[in-house]
Simulated scan of single mutants.
Amino acid sequence: MNAAPRTPAALLNAALAADPGRPLVTFYDDSTGERVELSVATFSNWVAKTANLLQGDLGAEPGDRLALLLPAHWQSAVWLLACSAVGVVADVGGDAGAADVVVSGPESLDAARACSGERVALALRPLGGRFPQVPSGFVDYAVEVPGQGDRFAPFAPVDPDTLALVVAGAEWTGAEVVEKAAGDAEGLGLVGPGSRLLSGLPYGSWRGLSAGLYAPLATGGSVVLCPRLDQVGEEALAKRIEAERVTATAR
């Protein structure tokens, strides 16, 4: 009998083995009209490529700290799982000056320049588009990630009992993230496999991360990420909930 998953990356591997074709992350950007839906298989492929970039090209090792300066976004979710796969500590909204690697969106580039290590920039454009011009001192994620391998294997086993996630001043190991996410499920309305949670919460808190990724992953559910719900009227939101077959919401 296989042991129960004890890291977020192991949860993703288990989901991939169980049902690779089901939806996992659906993302809406209501400022651009973008909608992206990623199955477990597609999301896992992005995670593998990103983990290979992180471990190989960026030289990150278990225990290194990555400052994740990104909003709630499907690519942010990919980076969180890639960190778990490599054993890198994901410090959400963390101090770039204290990080070994920084991953930044277009609005936080100035803060990200405090990192003396590797710097990665994401344009966060529809369809994962590139920057028109790569920001000075950064590599463009959209340029670097497509050529990475579709399978990932860590150079060293990831210890689930080491630090994995930092957000809003709180710290958790990989095993604690898994346990806490599963414990959140009932309160978020995730009643089991097939549950579909619409989250409008930012990623700058545990609740936002749990609703927007970890709890659906831990329970065989899926998430509809809508970080700009302030731009959606109640009637349009009701239609989206119906169209996406949402079973619970977190706002």
Rank of each mutant, 00 (worst) to 15 (best):
T42V: 14
W79C: 05
A98D: 09
L66S: 10
A85R: 05
S84C: 04
H73Q: 12
R65N: 04
L16F: 10
V40I: 10
S39H: 02
C83D: 00
K49V: 07
R65V: 15
A98I: 04
D95R: 12
P20E: 04
K49S: 03
S104D: 12
F43G: 00
G63L: 00
T26D: 05
A60Y: 01
G63A: 04
P23C: 09
A41N: 06
A48K: 02
S31Y: 07
A98R: 13
S44L: 06
E61T: 00
V86R: 03
G59R: 09
D100V: 01
P106E: 04
N45Y: 04
R113V: 09
D64P: 06
V89I: 13
P23V: 09
D19I: 06
G87H: 03
E107F: 11
S39N: 05
V78E: 03
D19P: 04
A85C: 06
V36G: 02
A114C: 12
E107G: 09
R22L: 07
A98Q: 12
R65A: 05
D30Q: 14
V102L: 10
R22W: 08
D30P: 06
F27N: 08
S104L: 11
L38W: 11
S108L: 15
G33R: 10
S104N: 12
S39I: 06
V102D: 03
S31R: 15
N52F: 02
A114P: 10
N52K: 00
S108D: 15
V88C: 04
A111T: 12
V40D: 00
G105K: 10
A67S: 14
A96R: 08
R35K: 13
L80F: 09
V103E: 09
A77C: 15
E37W: 05
S31T: 15
L66N: 08
T26E: 12
T50D: 06
Q75S: 12
A111C: 11
A51T: 01
D29Y: 09
G93E: 08
G56V: 10
L54R: 07
C83I: 05
A48H: 07
E34R: 07
G94Y: 08
D30W: 14
A60Q: 13
G105W: 10
A72T: 13
A17V: 10
A114R: 15
P23H: 06
L81D: 02
F27D: 05
E34N: 11
R113M: 13
A96D: 05
F43L: 13
L58Y: 06
D100F: 01
L66Q: 11
L81Q: 11
S76F: 08
A114E: 15
G94C: 07
S108C: 11
D57E: 13
G56Y: 01
D57Q: 13
E34Y: 07
W46S: 10
S39Y: 04
A48V: 02
A98K: 13
T42N: 08
P23E: 05
G93Y: 09
D91K: 03
V92Y: 00
T26N: 04
L53Y: 00
A51Y: 02
V88Q: 02
V86C: 03
V92R: 00
W79S: 00
F27Y: 15
D110H: 14
A18S: 12
L68C: 09
A60R: 10
L58D: 01
L81E: 04
D91P: 06
A60N: 05
